[in-house]
Design a protein around this nucleic acid. Structure first.
Lengths: 228, 228
DNA sequence: AACATCACTTGATTTGGATCAACTCCGCAA
DNA sequence: TTGCGGAGTTGATCCAAATCAAGTGATGTT
């Protein structure tokens, strides 16, 4: 069963035994989303959390003036909204929308809580997963407050590099996973600034051809961005 | 037993039964900290998490250039570093230091994990607590990226208002809990900007006399800061 | 083939907050 | 009393990024 295979690969379920996984798979629903479809809105009752099969889901908040802040963009294999399911209010604090056609697995809250009560190792696993995401948020906060736009763009490229191809000679190629406008918002900068920031990374061997970015010396870039 | 009384009042343990609490109290250590004392450094093994009895503890990260970013300042009754204890790396990702004389309760990781395995309701409670903090981080990220300095200062004042005195006529008085320099860093602005931001809030009835801040019309301020 | 639209890029101008610097006020110690 | 240092304010200048604006070059549509 395809569903089972995917769940198994999700970081959240890495250490969970086969039997439990099968049980989980039985209680999940697969859901298809078209580009731009809303998954849930801020304030909705948090009935489910999700694992992504394919596509990208962005979590964001909309301010009163209509300005959007992207909290995170999750990709294949990642899970999200775990925290909302366990919050006191039982509400999603953010808005979730697919940024292209996507498939997700929907796991109901009720089943999940039952599972935690039955299996404490599972609870620990979940705590670890949420902690990791919390750590990501702390890093994000640090990035936004203390790095310049070019540094943030560079750090983003390097982070995505790791998941992609590296040539024998150390040259790396990143294929941007989604629109530059979305990356910009995620980094809390304007598209214009993103464009200029990319240009400023040229001294570090960063060249862009549409969505394909080549990085000649990732070390120099990492040095400049103050990461790793 | 004083320790037990404090633990009982902590949000984390609100719904925990008396017997468990007693057991927890027995496994805790009370720790006194002088002003400026380090509790743990980023990268240390996460052996414990903490509940604050008195004083203020700031969690921060220091960038390579020596610049400090304050992630949060926790006060009496609050717990922190829960997430670190459950992360894969088992390391604190931040630096913790008291900003004045303080007392904390230190709860060992090992005992805690045992407790979770025994009592799943406790695990759920913990998940809720961590989720709440995660929500705080998301809000913080939003504030930093989409609010001006005066708006952030105003929001900070309003948040602290709620815990303090309100007169019959709607006028509120906040007594700043710690140095303005620390508040500034927490809001990711410079002390000079904090000072100027406070001055800009004057149209909303905000006047400062040393650490005592008076807010004549909290509603107008909330409107300006785009909160509540 | 003509046109609209979307996804950027590039240029000119503005601005909020940082930086640098001087100064006040207050507590405290010799 | 004087003198010092830390906390906070105020003023002048600078700079990174936002904003406003125009242009390009793909892609799809009638």
């Amino acid at each position: 069963m395809e569903l089972l295979q995917t769940i198994k690969k999700s970081p959240l379920f890495l250490t969970i035994d086969e039997e439990t996984l099968k049980e989980i798979a039985e209680h999940c629903r697969k859901k298809k989303l078209y580009k731009g479809q809303e998954l849930f809105a801020a304030g909705d009752t948090a009935e489910n959390f999700y694992i992504i099969l394919s596509g990208w889901i962005k979590l964001s908040r909309i301010s009163r003036e209509g300005e959007e802040i992207i909290i995170h963009v999750f990709g294949p294999g990642e899970s999200f909204a775990e925290a909302a399911v366990f919050s006191d209010k039982k509400k999603y604090p953010v808005y979730a929308q697919s940024i292209e056609d996507a498939e997700v697995i929907e796991i109901p809250r009720s089943f999940f809580i039952k599972k935690i009560e039955e299996d404490s190792r599972f609870a620990l696993r979940l705590l670890g997963s949420i902690s990791a995401h919390q750590h990501y948020l702390v890093q994000q906060l640090e990035q936004v407050t203390s790095r310049t736009a070019p540094q943030r763009v560079g750090a983003f490229l390097l982070r995505f590099c790791k998941r992609q191809t590296e040539n024998a000679d150390g040259v790396m190629v990143v294929d941007l996973p989604y629109d530059k406008a979305i990356i910009s918002t995620r980094l809390s900068i304007k598209p214009e600034t993103f464009s200029r920031a990319l240009a400023k990374l040229e001294p570090y061997g960063v060249t862009a051809d549409k969505r394909a970015i080549t990085i000649k010396s990732p070390e120099a870039l990492a040095e400049f961005c103050d990461v790793d």
